[in-house]
Write a protein that binds this DNA or RNA. Structure first.
Length: 493
RNA sequence: GAGCCGUUAGCUCAAUAGGUAGAGCAACUGACUCUUAAUCAGUAGGUUGCCGGUUCGAUUCCGGCACGGCUCACCA
């Protein structure tokens, strides 16, 4: 603690004075009967007469957010988990010595209040305090009451202050939590079960991303923080858990941006005897149910852009999207060298041995993705960039896969799962060849997963949804850090 | 990793063609028993992110570093 700060010194002196007078500055036996919202919901609509006739006593507790002192009486605002309410302390009611004690309280202290409800001359519902107790002496001053805390760095590093001072921030996180709750309800209603799979993977898999590396001492074993739960979830499907979902953290050792945090939350779900087309329908239902609950309707704006989620959302084939949005020469769809040539012309880096599918995917990312503002399912991706997806029955060059784009961002990725173990092995081998140049690539074939697949996985479709990015849309948040309580920052010096 | 921008009191912000750093809120003292960013009077609070350079003099100009933001690259 910064012992030189005068403001803190003052409060420490107050703390010592309290103890000298036999007052515990950190008691834990105060019992709360109501929240601020309970009182507002019960009494806001009642007349003054009805309030008076009640006469019930309420016990509330919260942090003092404002003090308006009049010498022999004082208005305060307290904040609890549900909001704020005003309280009125009068010397003649609480007593002279208690009132003198109250005068030493600071904004930021926690207080327990016991009193009756009334309405002031200016029509504000207020607790007439009969008794009160200090519950916590706060030693540091809070951010300013009017502007709140705006310094972005302080808001992320000291999220607790952000939550105390900026009500909208709390709203964003409550929305996030509500959305996740909705997901659990949605899948549970459909007979899915929630599972947990390892965070520590001997072989990273399920996505092409650089993993965090760690080490287990007792086993003397290299481990990787998972980049995706996919391969373990499929093992559970093989084990007969036909409908499962997992909401949990993934870790990717890559750049940080407004769209990327090294740890992020992913929803993955798998349903046997379903196809990627079933997943598309379910995605519409799931996301629409969340939007309705949070926004009331199926439209809302994100960063000034009006988004319309009225189903059905657009479906467009990957190849068609290149033609429509990219206005590319149709020849590139058949001719790999042409595709690479076009990509190079756009300034995209094409490594030696870049596959046709990879080139097309890079072109898609460059030319199509940013234009997909309204929700759109892009379907039938090149098989070459979909190593875990089932091949399409009519055209083995494309996979039964889709990605959902909203506001120019990828939100979901789903597909009919590849359950042919021989094909899966070949795809892994192919993938390793392609990534051979990358220094950070972890080049290990997941034999354990392939063995599981060889026992037989029922026809299954699966999907992953980036929860943070989805919540960003729901809450109109410009940065992923606004929807993660504690985004990763460098160490403070 | 690269480019641009930022860092001044606990918080929100000013300021100087280089010339002793200001305000509001918070705090402290006092007045006030219906306020709503309460009001009124007074007081205190700063190594201007850190290190170095130019200068008689640097918060201001220059260089480096730290941390943060945005954009780009890698990716979800």
């Amino acid at each position: 603690m910064d012992e030189t700060s005068e403001l803190i010194q003052q409060r420490i002196r107050k703390l010592e004075d309290l103890r000298k007078n036999g007052i515990d500055p950190y008691p834990n036996d105060f019992r709360v009967t109501h929240t601020s919202r309970d009182l507002h919901e019960t009494f806001d609509s009642l007349s003054d007469e009805e309030l008076k006739s009640g006469g019930e006593t309420f016990c509330l507790a919260g942090r003092i957010m404002a003090i308006r002192d009049f010498g022999k009486a004082s208005f305060i605002q307290i904040q609890d988990r549900k909001g704020r309410i005003q309280a009125y302390l009068q010397r003649d009611i609480v007593g002279e010595s208690a009132f003198q004690l109250f005068k030493t309280f600071d904004i930021g202290d926690f207080i327990g209040l016991e009193g009756k409800i009334f309405r002031t001359k200016t029509r504000e519902l207020t607790l007439q305090v009969q008794r009160f107790r200090l519950l916590v002496k706060s030693l540091r001053p809070l951010p300013e009451k009017w502007h709140g805390l705006t310094d972005i760095e302080a808001r992320y590093r000291q999220r607790y202050l952000d939550l105390i001072a900026n009500p909208k921030v709390k709203e964003i996180f409550l929305t996030r939590i509500k959305a996740i709750q909705k997901i659990r309800d949605f899948f549970t209603q459909r007979d899915f079960i929630e599972v947990e799979t390892p965070m520590l993977h001997p072989i990273p898999g399920g996505a092409t991303a650089k993993p965090f590396k760690t080490h287990h001492n007792a086993l003397d074993m290299e481990l990787y923080m998972r980049v995706a739960p996919e391969l373990f979830l499929k093992r559970l499907v093989i084990g007969g858990l036909e409908r499962i979902f997992e909401i949990n953290r993934c870790f990717r050792n890559e750049g940080i941006s407004t769209q990327h945090n090294p740890e992020f939350t992913m929803l993955e779900f798998y349903q046997s005897y379903a196809t990627y087309e079933d997943m598309i329908k379910m995605t519409e239902e799931l996301l629409c149910s969340m939007i309705k609950e949070i926004h009331g309707g199926l439209r809302f704006t994100y960063q000034g852009k009006e988004l319309d989620f009225t189903p059905p959302w657009r479906r467009i084939r990957f190849n068609d999207s290149l033609l429509e949005y990219g206005k590319v020469d149709p020849a590139i769809l058949k001719d790999p060298s042409k595709a690479i040539e076009v990509a190079k012309k756009l300034g995209l880096e094409m490594q030696k041995g870049t596959s046709h599918g990879r080139a097309l995917a890079d072109l898609f990312k460059e030319m199509v993705e940013p234009q997909l503002l309204q929700p759109a399912f892009v379907i039938q991706y090149p098989t070459e960039v979909s190593p875990l997806s089932r091949r399409n029955g009519n055209d083995p060059e494309v996979a039964d896969r889709f990605e959902l784009f909203i506001a120019g961002r990828e939100i979901a990725n789903g597909f009919s799962e590849l359950n042919d173990p021989v094909d899966q092995r070949e795809r892994f081998v192919q993938q390793m060849k392609e990534r051979g140049d990358e220094a950070d690539a972890v080049l290990t074939l997941d034999e354990d997963f392939l063995r599981a697949l060889e026992f037989g996985m029922p026809p299954t479709a699966g999907e992953g949804i980036g929860i943070d990015r989805w919540v960003m849309l729901l809450t109109d948040a410009p940065s992923i850090r606004d929807v993660i309580f504690f985004p990763l920052l460098r160490m403070e010096k």
